[in-house]
């Protein structure tokens, strides 16, 4: 409050470009009316969007910001062209994971073209720090981090994603 009474320098400059210093102590200045009107005009310009200003806020759940490239959200296990998981259960992601959130149990694959597949593949999303190391370590390009970031759950167990959940992500 003290600053506004002491000196409203911007209004002074716009009102008196010629530099008449006497006017600044005049009646108009003391009543603040020109300053208030200028300020209100500014406000109405924004309300009526007369100056072409952009709106920055979003109505979040309905409107979403586009996710930037390389965003690291929830994991997805990729499928090959036959709809089978690409993962061969090599445990590289489990080994490199700094937060120890991946649990794999391997089994023999029933298919001709590969030997091994995961019987169980679980990621504890609550432990995960979304560093993306698993994606980098994967030799088969079988795991990736999607752009999904807003999945909630009502209990902890629901945040331990099993293989089917990860495949459908």
């Amino acid at each position: 409050m003290t600053t506004s009474t002491a000196s409203p320098p911007e209004t002074q400059q716009t009102q008196a470009p010629t530099g008449e210093k006497k006017k600044s102590t005049g009646f108009k200045f003391k009543t603040y009316i020109p300053a208030v009107i200028t300020g209100l005009w500014n406000t109405f310009k924004h309300i009526l969007k007369l100056d072409g200003h952009k709106t920055f806020t979003l109505n979040y759940p309905e409107e979403k910001l586009p996710v930037k490239k390389g965003y690291r959200g929830e994991h997805r296990l990729k499928k090959d062209e036959l709809g089978r998981e690409k993962c061969v259960a090599c445990f590289m992601c489990q080994t490199v994971c700094p937060s120890v959130c991946i649990r794999i149990i391997a089994e023999e694959a029933p298919w001709e073209d590969r030997d091994k597949r995961p019987a169980v593949f679980e990621i504890d999303m609550l432990r995960c720090i979304y560093c993306g190391m698993c994606e980098e370590a994967c030799p088969c390009d079988a795991i990736e981090l999607t752009e999904t970031y807003n999945v909630v759950a009502t209990n902890r167990h629901a945040k331990v994603y099993d293989k089917d959940r990860l495949l459908s992500n």
Binding site: T95, E107, E108, K116
Partner: peptide, 8 residues
């Protein structure tokens, strides 16, 4: 076979 990785 496929029981565990040795480094674990």
């Amino acid at each position: 076979l496929y029981e565990a990785r040795v480094w674990n």
